[in-house]
C-alpha cells in the first residue's frame, strides 16, 4: 500500500463498483460529511443520501451519488456499502424528477406510517440526487 493513501472501496449488492488507492475520500455520514485520510480512527457510520467525493492530489477525481448505506473505516481502508450508486455526471435529471413526483404522489396516497416513511425516504433520496446533479 502506497504511503499516505487510503484504499477505498465502493460496493453495491450487485457488484464491486470501485476499488482504488486514493488520497482522501469525503463521505456523507448520517451526522455530517466526514473526510477519510489514512490512519483514520476505526468508525462505522450510516450514510445519508449524498455525494461521495474521491480526492486524488488536489483535485476531486470522482464524485459519486449514493442513496444511503453504510461506511466502515479503518486506518488503512474505507469501505462504503451502498444500495444505489450513480456517478454524479450520469444522473438523469428527468428520470429523477419523475421519481421525486412519484414519491410525492405515494406520500399523499400513503395509508399507514410505514408507507409514509418509505415515501418520505424516497423523496429525500430524489431531492438529494437533484441537488447533487445541479
Amino acid at each position: 500500500m502506497a504511503e499516505g493513501k487510503v484504499s477505498f472501496e465502493l460496493v453495491s449488492p450487485e457488484r464491486l463498483l470501485l476499488s482504488e488507492e486514493v488520497d482522501m475520500v469525503v463521505v456523507p455520514g448520517e451526522e455530517g460529511d466526514f473526510g477519510v485520510l489514512t490512519r483514520h480512527t476505526p468508525l462505522i457510520s450510516t450514510l445519508r443520501p449524498g455525494v461521495i467525493q474521491v480526492h486524488n492530489g488536489v483535485a476531486v477525481s470522482e464524485s459519486i451519488f449514493v442513496a444511503g448505506g453504510f461506511a466502515e473505516v479503518t486506518p488503512a481502508r474505507c469501505t462504503v456499502l451502498a444500495e444505489e450508486a450513480v456517478a454524479v455526471g450520469e444522473i438523469d435529471r428527468a428520470a429523477t424528477e419523475q421519481r421525486l413526483s412519484d414519491a410525492r404522489d405515494d406520500l399523499l396516497d400513503a395509508k399507514d406510517d410505514a408507507e409514509k416513511a418509505s415515501a418520505e425516504r424516497r423523496i429525500a433520496v430524489a431531492e438529494a440526487m437533484l441537488q447533487a446533479a445541479a
Partner: peptide
C-alpha cells in the same frame, strides 16, 4: 489485525 478492534459508531451502535 483490526478484527475485534473498537469502532466508533455514528450515529450510535443501536441505530446502525
Amino acid at each position: 489485525a483490526l478484527d475485534g478492534a473498537v469502532y466508533e459508531y455514528e450515529p450510535g451502535e443501536e441505530e446502525i
